[in-house]
Design a protein around this nucleic acid. Structure first.
Length: 562
DNA sequence: TAAATTGGCGCC
DNA sequence: AAAGGGCGCCAATTTA
């Protein structure tokens, strides 16, 4: 028996609440409770809480030791519904939604909150002004339910908004749990890689040494972290570079290349995950990034501060389970091609994706006479919209054996080029094309038919190149976004599977989850992950033979997972 | 002087 | 092997 309740925080720590009838309307008058946490704690029968946004309520509940079963996040749903309606940039706050409903002036959204490492230690966000009374909030809620029903696939969109809400719960819970992080191990690692922090005249010893080696190779002082300086130095040595990107540097035969590449790698660690990062982001043995579900247009999550989704592989040495506990690290294998199989319903590609084994090997057996490397390039090229090289050449082979799969992404690309919207399987919708007038306003150069001034503009023109860029974006959007749909449902399912266990989700990164659990629980957790994967596949894509296998590793240290 | 942009690179 | 999709973050540089 699921019982829905609506809740809005009020001043001085209280809340207005009301039980909801099946039509989403209050079935009893709104009552005021003096203590929000108590109001929730004393109503275990409430299995779904409808509220304005998860972020301002749930961290408080978690701080009070209260977890809830499900919620409906009105502002998260509003964002998805607006995009689905082709109104991507419109204000998405509950106050704005109410104003649109009532025909009043629509308030702009508040600026996004910026990352604040210090907020890790505070128990919850400062209480926001109560801008939409509960009864008005419920009018918005009722309107959102109606807007779901007017779409081509109401059931899918309802699944999406429900799952986005579940994602909001997961995000808050992962922030509260934190990723186990050993500052002592991290510091030792930094010293091992970079040398003493201040030994090189204020910078780490190893960086100073490598900078000296670079300078010695050029015969003059060159600052390796200044691209312009490096390009100039190579030019003086008779080597023309268009950039100092690693892949370009590595094509060059010069004694400065090796120390330069080494410097860049270490410098990156130093600036992005060095001593300052540690100081800012790790407290009491935990790294607590702020996760933003649906932070990208495709539905992938972002994090706010701390660079949690770009933790370099070497730094993962510092992610170590508590004594007696383990990290269950699970990675969805070749998720995006499998998703393409599921959304395109290409019979041959589904057959390939119906097996748990190496998908690229199966593709190559079918279409590339066993050359796995070529098969992988072709598949990724189809998904990313590669325009040249081997990927393009092999696309023809791929198209012959998997015509519907390739046609699916080709159609998405065509839609994008023609300025149409594309949607993920569950209905997350891409932003509209920026029209020429807007681009001009934004300073983006337009096609100049009278005076082609470069190779690309003489062949295609800027406007046409913009449209092809949007085609690549929409081509990728339908796959990456539908993969995010699946991952979101998987996460929601896993959250429920873990209910009642000691283990908790502590990390999520596109196609990978980490659960921190007692050693003896690890096998149950691994089973829960596999079960969540299967359920997510069925719920998201319906009846298909496609499987979404996870590679699961139970480790003490994250770096040992791969 | 602060904000915006650029180049580069980490992750998927 | 080539330079295609999505991000966040840092330092340096340019712009307002």
């Amino acid at each position: 028996m699921t019982e829905r309740w609506a809740l809005a925080p009020t001043e001085h720590g209280g809340a207005d609440i009301a039980p909801l009838a099946p039509d989403g309307r209050p079935k009893a008058p709104v009552t005021h409770e003096p203590d929000l946490e108590e109001a929730v704690r004393t109503r275990p029968e409430a299995t779904r809480w409808v509220w304005r946004d998860t972020h301002t309520v749930y961290p408080r509940l978690l701080a009070a030791g209260i977890k809830i079963d499900r919620c409906y996040d009105i502002e998260a749903a509003e964002t998805l519904l607006l995009a689905h309606e082709g109104r991507h940039g419109e204000p998405r706050s509950a106050a704005a939604a109410l104003a649109r409903l009532r025909g009043g002036p629509v308030p702009p959204d508040p600026p996004p909150r910026t990352a604040d490492p210090a907020s890790q230690s505070s128990l919850f966000e400062p209480r926001p002004p109560v801008d939409v009374p509960l009864t008005d909030l419920l009018d918005v809620y009722a309107d959102q339910q109606r807007r779901h029903t007017t779409t081509a696939h109401p059931d899918r969109l309802r699944l999406l908004t429900a799952s986005e809400s579940a994602g909001m719960l997961v995000a808050a819970e992962m922030h509260a749990a934190g990723l186990p992080w050993r500052a002592d191990v991290h510091r030792a690692l930094l010293t091992e890689l970079l040398g003493d922090r201040y030994a090189g005249g204020g910078e780490p010893r190893r960086l100073a040494e490598l900078a000296d080696e670079v300078s010695a190779a050029f015969g003059r002082r060159v600052r390796p972290d200044l691209p312009a300086d490096v390009v100039k130095a190579f030019a003086q040595a008779g080597i023309k570079l268009t950039s100092t990107r690693r892949w370009e540097l590595e094509t060059v035969d010069h004694p400065a290349v090796k120390p330069l590449v080494a410097y860049k790698k270490l410098y990156r660690i130093y600036t992005a995950h060095g001593w300052s990062w540690l100081q800012d982001w790790v407290r009491d043995g935990r790294f607590r990034p702020e996760y933003l579900p649906g932070g990208t247009v495709s539905g992938r999550w972002t994090t706010n501060g701390g660079g949690a989704l770009q933790i370099p592989k070497v730094v993962r040495r510092a992610v170590i389970a508590d004594p007696g506990w383990r990290l269950v690290v699970a990675d969805a294998a070749q998720m995006e091609p499998r998703v393409l199989a599921a959304i395109s319903r290409d019979p041959a590609f589904m057959e390939v994706a119906a097996q748990d084994g190496d998908l690229y090997q199966s593709v190559s057996d079918k279409a590339f006479s066993g050359d796995r490397g070529q098969a992988k390039i072709a598949v990724l090229g189809a998904i990313y919209g590669q325009t040249s090289g081997d990927g393009l050449k092999n696309l023809a082979l791929l198209r012959r054996r998997f015509p519907r799969a390739v046609a699916y992404v080709d159609e998405a690309a065509r839609a994008g080029e023609e300025g149409r919207l594309v949607r993920t399987w569950l209905g997350r919708t891409c932003p509209p094309a920026v029209n020429a007038a807007d681009q001009e306003e934004a300073g983006i150069p337009q096609d100049d038919p009278e005076g082609p001034s470069s190779a690309s503009s003489s062949t295609y023109g800027y406007a046409s190149s913009n449209s092809r860029a949007r085609g690549r974006f929409t081509r990728n959007f339908v796959v990456q976004g539908s993969a995010a749909d699946w991952a979101l449902l998987m996460l929601a399912a896993l959250r429920r599977e873990l209910d009642g266990m000691a283990g908790e989700l502590v990390f999520f990164q596109h196609d990978e989850v980490i659960v921190h659990c007692p050693q003896e629980e690890a096998d149950r957790v691994a089973d829960a992950i596999r079960s969540a994967s299967g359920l997510a596949g069925r719920l998201t894509f319906g009846q298909t033979p496609v499987r979404f296998p996870f590679t699961v590793a139970t480790v003490e240290c994250y770096a040992d997972a791969k």
